[in-house]
């Protein structure tokens, strides 16, 4: 699997560290809403198909990348810097297994 780092170019997956689901947005630090925190820390969309996720180019420039990748084919369709990605807000009212 190759991921094209915007700094370093196409690099092998072994240079990267997977940092998980990129659909999550950290709640307001002052929030005490346990449900929202629980969703952030434990719940995952885990789709079979296109997945927004974070990878760190840990064996290279160490930037975190917002990657869209298909979990069925491993085809990477987009890569950008996570800090620029303007992180997609997750819907905290998604129906979660733990809640229901």
């Amino acid at each position: 699997m190759l991921i094209t780092c915007p700094y370093c170019g196409p690099r092998d997956v072994s240079e990267y560290t997977y940092q998980g689901d990129g659909n999550r947005t950290r709640p307001d630090p002052a929030s005490t809403d346990q449900e929202v925190w629980n969703a952030y820390v434990y719940d995952r969309l885990n789709p079979a198909g296109e997945h927004h996720e974070i990878w760190q180019h840990s064996g290279g420039c160490r930037a975190h990348l917002a990657v869209t990748r298909n979990t069925l084919t491993h085809v990477v369709s987009s890569v950008s810097f996570a800090r620029d990605a303007g992180h997609k807000k997750s819907d905290s009212r998604r129906k979660t297994g733990a809640k229901a």
Binding site: T17, R26, Q56, H64, F81, A82, R83
Partner: peptide
Amino acid sequence: MQHLEYLLDVVWP
């Protein structure tokens, strides 16, 4: 290191 980098790059850019 990775924990801190993640926070800076992803959560608090």
